[in-house]
């Protein structure tokens, strides 16, 4: 199902975040070519798992936890 969060999708998001300093959810969805609503859900799960964190610089972005 296209609207289900898979481990594969989460890994894709993590790999993507390794290539950028910070990103918005929609940029992640666009660049990995996945549906935005599913990416939103996956990012929420990654956040609860403590894998990603949020950074605020005028607007909110996500980044890998502890990453530069």
């Amino acid at each position: 199902m296209a609207d289900e969060v898979t481990g594969e999708l989460k890994q894709k998001i993590i790999d993507y975040l390794k290539t950028v300093s910070k990103a918005k959810n929609k940029e992640v969805a666009r660049d990995i070519g996945a549906d935005k609503h599913v990416v939103d859900k996956a990012i929420a799960e990654l956040s609860k798992e403590g894998v990603i964190e949020y950074v605020y610089l005028g607007a909110s972005f996500i980044k890998l936890k502890g990453g530069e």
Binding site: K48, G50, E53, Y54, V55, Y56, S60
Partner: peptide, 10 residues
């Protein structure tokens, strides 16, 4: 900077 609680960005 970055501070927060696990699971939240707000």
């Amino acid at each position: 900077g970055i501070v927060g609680v696990t699971g939240y960005g707000s």
